[in-house]
């Protein structure tokens, strides 16, 4: 494992779901994690203690030496939000494909039909994308899309505005217009735990302004959306994400994905990537 891959923080569990010791995988290596006397811990296969961080309701660790703190999401800390742990979904795909799918809006009318999108409202207008060098993150802003039912709390179709942020190679944050509170953003994240290059555990998490919808409904809405994505993610060929242009054909609607792939390639993040065109 190269340092470019090892020196990141990765999610390995939902804090509320960790009791005794349990085994999982990270980047192809076995690890164990658990909670003893109120303290979370993670150990590698040789028994060595790995660093831990508890944040966003999840437990994070790193097999290497991260040279910076795990990212923060200041917007999610404003008072009045409900923090929603959505559990996890195991998907047979590259962790990078899972992130890329989360950054994509053009699939809404076809994969999340009548929920996040519907024909004939398929057009993706131009939006802004940049790789922010100071923070080493990918951002897409001014993303707009018509949605029949944007969220559990939305009624009827609206044009929703989004921002996407990739703060780490296997994590993405979505900021979305919030129907009950104009001017604020709902925060929906996707934390991906790479089990292997072609298998991942996906942990969605949300920080929403929504006081009315029962928690179980919020979770099942998100799970349903993600099940629809899984039927795509497990059927892309090749399983790994091609980083070199030529194998796949992007369009203007894919600017976020183009920037994400370029950023991964530039930072040498190749776990779950296909670097040489097959």
């Amino acid at each position: 494992m190269t340092p470019e891959v090892a020196n990141h923080w990765y999610p390995v569990g939902m804090c509320s779901g960790i009791h005794g010791a349990q085994a999982t995988q990270l980047l192809g290596q076995s690890i164990t994690l658990g909670k003893t006397g109120g303290q979370f811990w993670v150990r590698d296969a040789g028994g060595k203690a790995l660093p831990v961080i508890e944040r966003f309701g999840h437990l994070w660790t790193s097999p290497g030496q991260p040279n910076r703190d795990l990212f923060t999401i200041p917007e999610a800390e404003t008072p009045g939000r409900r923090l929603v742990d959505c559990g996890s979904v195991r998907v047979k795909c590259s962790p990078l494909r899972a992130v890329e799918n989360f950054l994509d809006i053009a699939h809404f009318p076809f994969v999340h039909t009548d929920i996040l999108g519907a024909e004939p409202h398929t057009e993706v207008e131009r939006y802004d994308v940049d790789i922010r060098e100071e923070v080493d993150e990918v951002w897409a802003t001014k993303v707009k899309f018509f949605q029949p039912q944007a969220a559990k709390s939305a009624e009827g179709g609206i044009t929703t505005e989004y921002m996407y942020r990739v703060p780490a190679p296997t994590c993405a944050v979505l900021y979305k217009t919030c129907p009950p509170r104009p001017g604020e953003w709902d925060v929906i994240t996707l934390f991906v735990q790479p089990l292997t290059e072609e298998l991942c555990e996906v942990w969605p998490w949300m920080a929403l302004y929504d006081d009315d919808t029962p928690m179980a409904d919020l979770v099942s809405f998100q799970q349903m959306i993600f099940m629809q994505d899984r039927s795509i993610l497990e059927n892309q060929i090749p399983r790994k994400l091609p980083l070199d242009p030529g194998m796949e054909v992007p369009t203007q609607a894919d600017l976020t994905s183009i920037a994400y792939r370029r950023w991964l390639k530039r930072t040498g993040y190749t776990y779950g990537a296909q670097v040489v065109a097959a």
Binding site: T122, P238, V249, T251
Partner: peptide, 26 residues
């Protein structure tokens, strides 16, 4: 069985008249 856009299996697509549409982005 591979869509040139993002590699989705075309066998999951849908037929409209004499065209085949990919299920991922149509």
């Amino acid at each position: 069985d591979r869509c040139p856009h993002r590699g989705m299996r075309l066998s999951h697509g849908f037929v409209r008249g004499e065209t085949l549409a990919c299920i991922y982005h149509g």
